[in-house]
């Protein structure tokens, strides 16, 4: 690890001006709402603070570029789970985003009580798996979600010749899924 050279970097002068904090927070709120604020226009509104504000925005842009939109926990899964279960406009069997995390979906191979099963490839290991996906609309109901997780956990703990092993349990963009050994035929 490279040691931080405090002295060499202390040139960053951040004025003690409450407007700076307000401006940076406003810009962050835009980013968190999933918008792309116009940086140049934004900076123009604060002529006296331009240099330090530009530095702070550079940092924020960097964090957000790395961290994707669903950065605040409150704005991701929780809100989805809390929404009333009308499901209008969300087809229950919409094909999930592909690839789903580490899994590239190839084709649908069946439907069970709790979700759709796909044949998929786990990209990092290059192996074929069966991927059980809880449809997005169904995640609106926390009880279904819990049942799905319990089922996956229970299956993962079982080691039996007639029961397929669970490799991975995950969630990507609100879609819950788990990967199992694929049995041909």
């Amino acid at each position: 690890m490279i040691p931080d050279s405090h002295s060499a970097l202390s040139g960053a002068e951040i004025p003690d001006d409450p407007r700076l904090m307000q401006a940076v927070q406003e810009y962050l709120a835009e980013l968190e709402a999933g918008r792309r604020p116009n940086r140049r226009e934004f900076l123009k509104r604060f002529p006296e603070l331009q240099a330090p504000l530009a530095q702070c925005l550079d940092g924020l842009d960097f964090v957000h570029k790395a961290a994707a939109p669903g950065i605040r926990p409150e704005t991701t899964t929780r809100d989805v789970v809390r929404m009333p279960g009308n499901g209008a406009g969300t087809p229950a069997d919409a094909v999930p985003a592909n690839p789903l995390g580490d899994f590239q979906i190839i084709r649908e191979i069946g439907r069970g009580g709790m979700g759709i099963i796909y044949e998929a490839v786990q990209l990092s290991l290059g192996r074929r798996v069966a991927l059980k996906v809880l449809p997005f609309a169904a995640t609106l109901n926390p009880r279904h979600l819990l049942r799905f997780k319990n089922e996956a956990q229970a299956a993962a703990q079982l080691h039996h010749t007639n029961i397929v092993p669970v490799y991975y349990v995950g969630c990507e963009r609100g879609v819950h899924f788990y990967a199992m050994q694929l049995i041909d035929g």
């Binding site: 790395a66 961290a67 994707a68 939109p69 950065i71 929780r78 997780k149 969630c171 990507e172």
Partner: peptide, 24 residues
């Protein structure tokens, strides 16, 4: 346990959001 599972999901989102896009 549920809270923890949720937080693991969220942090993977937060720090891996770039990943899915790159793999494609």
């Amino acid at each position: 346990e549920q809270d923890l599972a949720r937080s693991i999901d969220n942090s993977s989102h937060a720090l891996g959001g770039d990943l899915a896009a790159s793999i494609s």
